[in-house]
Design a protein around this nucleic acid. Structure first.
Lengths: 256, 256
DNA sequence: CAGTGGTCTAGACCACTAG
DNA sequence: TAGTGGTCTAGACCACTGT
């Protein structure tokens, strides 16, 4: 009783809410403007806070909202187009100032990365092209317009950078730059790339100023040199704020 | 009280749950195997069902689980790699049997698409290159290994297919094929592509066998011909089951 | 039909941010 | 310290699937 049950289609409340809110965002709000808090919005729409939050989550997923704990919910700017095109045979460092090397250390890569590094080795031999030796993990950060948009781990087997000399103790970021410089000496023959949805690991989330588990676009790149996989990059892009572009002709310019 | 509060770091329960479940999936379950139902799992871990669901949602987002109402929760197979590489200057139809034309009708595209279609027109003129005329919307479905992985709307301004003759009433799928055939007559000069996260619209969701709002990867492609945007494709890929590949050298073969 | 996941409620407390 | 979003609970009912 009380509920008029106006439609035969029981469209979920949060879905309808999302639509209504989305239209309101278009017509009544400016980018950066702060919305009423969740408790008030829920009351205003006559729903529980959890239901309201379900709608907000979707809008945030679509990049229309930005929520920050302790602050509030704001209207997000349009997603920034981030170029991830397979720039004609270039190493990840070459002439790209949007990436900033942060750290580097020898470490054991996850098995998924190991499989990529060994991808060209004969299945029968079992063993390894270069996965047995140490692998340098270079951590880099990508920023666009002052905003951190991606965190990357670049896995470089020591066998790919034979010319590298490692002095005893050296700052991680200096080592990172040296590994990248050595890498550029190899002839780059091609690259593989894949994009999939993931959720941010705790460390990546912190660098991207998001909570752990935040939705991210994971770009995996395999750099090929000498018939082998010379390096593997796993880059984690904020899915809420980024649109990955692969243009022959640059941006898609969705906004203006 | 009763809670031993074992850690100084108040890691969220659902996050810890997700980790535990994820490890269990690796070691104790087979692909396709069905998990205990949510009420039992929640009881077993001593949490509320909503909390358990938060963990399951994340695992589903990462493509590790598949949940179907009325059926249960199953262990998902590894994501399938779907090639979306900018195949050397090919129209969306050419020699690709993974796409199946479904329907076609003249319709008004969303404003975002209109902006793309007019992208090359002079900003000052305001008006339009060809957005004023009718626009054909071809709907297609992409299947891989018997599974629907993507739903596409291909926007083709009538001015891009001047040779097209439209008989009075014609089946939508036949019209779709004719539009595509006409399109192939144009010289394709290049294409722009962008990938971003979205949530499935109701109609796409139905064709992808998902609920509305399900996370999807939206691939927007702009086909360039004669210095103009001859067509725009908006393809919606299931984010849970798909990994988009852009290989020079084919798949990344994460699995085996 | 019984059993599943999906939606929704009305609370409570916590972690974080900013004044 | 006040106010925000984030987490969590213990229920309830609904929509869908298979038998």
């Amino acid at each position: 009783m009380g509920t008029t049950q106006l439609e035969t289609v029981p469209e979920p409340k949060y879905w309808h809410l999302k639509t209504v809110l989305g239209e309101a965002l278009d017509s009544e709000f400016q980018v950066g403007e702060i919305l009423p808090n969740e408790r008030e919005l829920a009351a205003r729409f006559g729903v529980a806070r959890a239901t309201l939050r379900q709608a907000l989550e979707q809008l945030e997923l679509e990049g229309r909202l930005q929520r920050r704990r302790g602050v509030g919910t704001t209207v997000a700017p349009p997603r920034v187009g981030v170029d991830v095109s397979t720039a004609r045979h270039r190493w990840p460092a070459a002439g790209d100032d949007s990436w900033q090397a942060v750290d580097c250390a020898a470490a054991e890569p996850p098995v998924a990365v190991l499989r990529l590094l060994d991808a060209e080795s004969d299945a029968g031999t079992g063993g390894a092209a270069h996965a047995d030796g140490p692998v340098y993990v270079v951590r880099r950060l990508r920023a666009t317009q002052g905003q951190a948009v991606a965190a990357e781990q670049l896995y470089v087997p020591a066998s790919s950078v034979p010319g590298l000399v490692v002095p005893g103790t050296q700052s991680g970021t200096a080592l990172a730059r040296r590994v990248l410089r050595e890498l550029e000496r190899l002839p780059l023959e091609g690259q593989d790339r894949a994009v999939e949805l993931g959720s941010a690991r705790a460390d990546d989330a912190k660098e991207l100023d998001r909570l752990p588990g935040a939705p991210v676009l994971v770009v995996t790149t395999r750099y090929l040199s000498g018939g082998r996989t010379a390096a593997v990059s796993v880059a984690t892009y904020r899915a809420d704020t980024c649109r990955l572009t692969f243009g022959d002709a640059g941006d898609l310019r969705i906004a203006s």
